[in-house]
């Protein structure tokens, strides 16, 4: 479902390698956790996957389409939630959701059904006609999540999904992720919350200094770290030392 091949991105005229020849494959119906220390290249990778940054080298293929040659086909099938929920402060929540529905061309009946359901789930119904600038950080994050789920994407790419969510919303969000995977959808997310990654993800990748240094299920990572009982936190610390 997601194929990254030789993906490379450098800054400062090639002096800093943010992502270095990254090869990665994520299957349909999988929740994939993308881990790494600050500045390891997680967000750069994600930004290349959603078309916000151009790779220097390598290719990205999602849902069977190459991002470079068929960007619109890819974008119709994915959705992206950034780590910082910066959105239009001067729109109301419902205006933002209608805008997302329009640009993703979500049909009227599905649009109404999904908006009502997701707003209820994330407890946003009461505030959805207020300007987004009146929202708290967590509420902004949730309205971006609702907007991203509106067209029922095949691939859901989320950068730090749990930051700012209250426990109830975080619980619902995890339920949504599991439900999506049970319907063959793919979730790719980066996180620093290792506990969530350990319990939620089918497979994990750890990126460090732009290179993928570990990849696999929890058991496979334990094998790689030659440590068969430790938590993901210990494995992460050992591998990224």
């Amino acid at each position: 479902m997601i194929e990254l091949s030789g993906l490379t991105k450098t800054y400062n005229r090639g002096q800093v390698k943010a992502v270095d020849a990254l090869d990665l494959s994520v299957r349909a119906g999988e929740i994939f956790g993308f881990l790494g220390p600050n500045g390891a290249g997680k967000t750069t990778t994600i930004k290349m996957m959603v078309g916000l940054l151009r790779p220097d080298r390598g290719s990205i293929s999602m849902a069977g389409y190459d991002l470079a040659s068929s960007p619109l086909e890819v974008k119709r099938r994915i959705s992206y939630v950034p780590d910082n929920p910066d959105i239009y402060q001067n729109l109301t929540g419902i205006e933002y959701l209608n805008f997302m529905g329009d640009v993703y061309r979500v049909r009227a009946t599905e649009r109404e059904q999904r908006i009502l359901h997701l707003l209820e789930l994330f407890a946003l119904t009461r505030v959805v006609s207020d300007p987004i600038k009146s929202y708290s950080h967590g509420m902004r994050h949730k309205i971006v999540l609702v907007g991203a789920l509106l067209h029922d994407p095949m691939i859901f790419i989320v950068d730090e999904p749990m930051v700012g969510l209250d426990p109830r919303s975080a619980h619902h969000f995890k339920e949504i992720l599991r439900d999506r995977c049970s319907h063959g959808r793919t979730v790719f997310f980066s996180t620093h919350i290792l506990d969530v990654a350990e319990r939620l993800c089918d497979r994990l990748g750890i990126i460090h200094k732009g290179k993928l240094i570990a990849l696999g299920t929890m058991d496979e990572l334990r094998d790689q770290a030659r440590n068969d009982k430790e938590s993901l936190e210990k494995i992460f610390l050992e591998l990224t030392e």
Binding site: I94, L97, N98, G101, D102, V103, R105, V106, R107, A108, R111, E112, I115, L116, L119, T125, V128, S129
Partner: peptide, 12 residues
Amino acid sequence: DLASRIRRGRSP
């Protein structure tokens, strides 16, 4: 009220 504010859709 909310249902009435969910638009039927307009062109991008």
